[in-house]
């Protein structure tokens, strides 16, 4: 059953990669990269169960945090055009 889940996950990853390579808009690519992070979390979790070691689940949770950092930085870049503190006095 976990093998089927893995295969489905790989198909989803392939579709996301297609969008990432071709995606006409920048936002398509942000979404694709973000989803790929989620897919990595799922992959590590499923791989742990597939190999009979469910303690991989904790590691998968850490990857969710990393994914969050990257997406927040990307969106902040688009909102403020910089990553430093955007104080109004500096403009």
């Amino acid at each position: 059953m976990f093998l089927v889940t893995l295969i489905a996950l790989f198909v989803a990853m392939a579709l996301v990669l297609c969008r990432l390579y071709t995606g006409p808009m920048v936002y398509d690519r942000i979404l694709a990269a973000n989803f790929f992070g989620t897919a990595a979390v799922l992959f590590i979790a499923v791989l742990g169960f597939f190999n009979g070691r469910p303690d991989f689940l904790d590691i998968a949770l850490l990857y969710a945090l990393i994914n969050f950092v990257g997406t927040v930085a990307t969106l902040k870049f688009f909102r403020y055009r910089s990553l430093g503190d955007a104080r109004p006095g500096m403009d």
């Binding site: 990432l20 694709a32 790929f36 992959f43």
Partner: peptide, 16 residues
Amino acid sequence: MLAGVFSLLAAMLFVT
């Protein structure tokens, strides 16, 4: 964006 995905893939390989 692609570089981020690249290192995620490398990380998945290391996990395997």
